[in-house]
Amino acid sequence: MLESIILDLISIGFMLTGTFFFITATIGLLRFPDLFTRLHATGKGDTLGAGLILIGLAIHAINAGMTSETVKILSICVFVFATSPVAAHAICRETYIKEGKHWVRGGKE
């Protein structure tokens, strides 16, 4: 009974923090001035946001006694952490080769 309460509290905390990071990633995507800075917001915020919500759901699945779902959700989490930076890097490299310039505070480079 007590460990069920503790697991519930941990999973609620993980899910709320993950949602917060998702929201900051979206605000960064809308607010930042150029592609590289937008990738700073989304490449980090999205990875950790998705990871935290998925870990929270995996803890909830352990608590509900669903073993196969726990393993699958954790594997999605590992996959997101491994591939999201690679996708960001691919877009970044394409833009750097094609345009070659980036936003600088107080004028153009």
């Binding site: 900051t24 605000i27 960064g28 800075t37 980090k44 950790l48 980036h102 600088v104």
Partner: peptide, 23 residues
């Protein structure tokens, strides 16, 4: 990673956006 996200969240939510990008 957690430190990085707190850093980015601070820069996103700050009204004047304290960023100075460079390569």
């Amino acid at each position: 990673i957690v430190l990085a996200n707190l850093d980015v969240a601070y820069r996103v939510l700050h009204p004047r956006m304290p960023i100075d990008p460079q390569i």
